[in-house]
Write a protein that binds this DNA or RNA. Sequence first.
DNA 1: TGTCTAATTAGATAGTAATCAAATCACCAT
DNA 2: ATGGTGATTTGATTACTATCTAATTAGACA
Lengths: 198, 198
Amino acid sequence: MQLEKLVHFHKIMGDPTRIKILALLSHGPLHGQAIAGKLGKTAPTITHHMTKLREINAIRERREKNTIYFELNLDSLRGQTTALLTLIQGKEREMESMTLTAEKLAVVRNFLDKEGRLKNIPAQKKKKLMVLEYLVQGLELGKRYPERELNEYLKQYHEDFATLRREFIMHQFMYRENGIYELNPPEMWDNKPVPSSH
Amino acid sequence: MQLEKLVHFHKIMGDPTRIKILALLSHGPLHGQAIAGKLGKTAPTITHHMTKLREINAIRERREKNTIYFELNLDSLRGQTTALLTLIQGKEREMESMTLTAEKLAVVRNFLDKEGRLKNIPAQKKKKLMVLEYLVQGLELGKRYPERELNEYLKQYHEDFATLRREFIMHQFMYRENGIYELNPPEMWDNKPVPSSH
DNA sequence: TGTCTAATTAGATAGTAATCAAATCACCAT
DNA sequence: ATGGTGATTTGATTACTATCTAATTAGACA
């Protein structure tokens, strides 16, 4: 359910220590003990909070020998902060923003071969997002996709379905709940600008 | 402290019932019992949640004979949802958005007499917001103003300092904590559009 | 004045969550 | 192997909060 995710996000954010962690990370990546030091908390406490932040996809991590560096996932945070607003301000538009503009389509077409399969996955982020948006058109809003079914769908476009599936999650096109995938509303996708005020 | 407010906002939002209430109100105003009915909760429970929502300025209320109608305060919600983002994404700009544009100033000037005092407080909301922004220029970001000091400052511009002070709070230019007033960051002011994505 | 309706307050209960100390795990380097 | 360092798990403690029932307040109206 969509509501649960929104609530969960805000519940996670409703804690001073976690907000401080995010503020710290906004200056650059840090490892666990550094965070613990700066906040005057013990290591287990930081682990606890990082687990929570991971649940809502607020951070990414990279390990280097024994220590783990955490950094913000700004795209994800942006999407989720605005999700509440889009839920609240007028139910009018729902599918409207779901259609690709013509000029985006032109870009995407460069990555397709004559059979309509992906020649490769764009490395450039902006273009990658356009391709992801293109792929997501074939999925249904509100429908629940078991992982196997999603893989089948993606394999039509590229053999590396696992990467595509991961990108869907990473960029908030879909979310996963016990192995079941489902589309997020378009407002949460990473390629969408923040909606203008009502 | 600014952090506390952010945390409080998210803590309040981290509850399914409250999110449902906001979603209901997005269709139009409702009174307490109607909300209770639609959500299958008792009246005291709704009162409880309304108190919380009031704390973060998420709702406005209007009474009609014996029943109270609640409605969303969208401006306030918009400001607070984006506050987290602006805290997190790069510390670069801070004062940048604090300057009035020339065309806004032109509007404001119509409300000032030759001594620079307010001839009256604009009734039209958009103009009122411009005037408030103008007044707030003389205050210092990060400084704490006891109520008496704030009154003195406002009295320079208009004898009805109480109204102005109330408007500052209502439109998120300032917040109050045990009788002490302090500026909110410009991103929270009601007259600011939602900031575009990074 | 008394009655009806809507809202609030008070008090109780049950569930959740932040934090720490102690123990454990995982990887690295000698 | 063995010792070291950083991260995680476990268990206990404490504090908070959503929800209900019962009691109370506050207007409106007749």
